[in-house]
């Protein structure tokens, strides 16, 4: 009986560890790292990092976000939207060879990561309108 109890405790602890592991790494069985990156990224035909970042900031404000922080050197912008829920979003802007800019966004809704393509497609549509540039998917 005691042995069974001990086994249960060990299993519960192991499961707890697995849960922490999964939460920290956001492991997914249905989506690979590359697929997620493709969903969250778009390439814009510009070499102007500051202009791109200012467009990202303006878009986030249009979408009802309040900015948390931004850094031109590292190319990151973070913002939070509160509307009965708390949505946190980080957008990074990175120059790419050939006068292009890679914009990557990742969002969480309350405590759940947003991994579906549709929300990111909406965001990039709004960003395109703000930046007046067409974007295309990353390879």
């Amino acid at each position: 009986m005691k042995r069974h109890l001990l086994a249960c405790v060990v299993m519960a602890i192991a499961q707890g560890c697995a849960a922490v592991h999964d939460q920290v790494l956001d492991t997914s069985e249905t989506q690979t790292q590359l697929q997620l990156r493709q969903v969250q990224s778009k390439i814009f035909e510009t070499n102007d990092k500051e202009r791109t970042m200012r467009a990202v900031i303006a878009t986030l404000q249009d979408l009802g976000f309040v900015l948390d922080k931004a850094d031109l050197t590292l190319g990151t912008v973070s913002a939070t939207k509160l509307d009965g829920y708390a949505m946190r979003m980080t957008v990074s802007v990175r120059p790419k060879d050939g006068g292009k800019m890679v914009v990557r966004a990742n969002a969480q809704m309350n405590t759940t990561p947003v991994t579906a393509p549709a929300p990111y497609q909406s965001f990039f549509r709004a960003l395109e309108r703000s930046i007046f540039l067409a974007s295309h998917s990353v390879d």
């Binding site: 009802g64 829920y85 909406s122």
Partner: peptide, 19 residues
């Protein structure tokens, strides 16, 4: 969650007035 997120990241008609 994905539906809520999609709506949160879609420009709403009142966005212009808020701006």
């Amino acid at each position: 969650v994905n539906e809520m997120a999609r709506e949160a990241l879609t420009l709403q008609p009142e966005a212009l007035e808020l701006r």
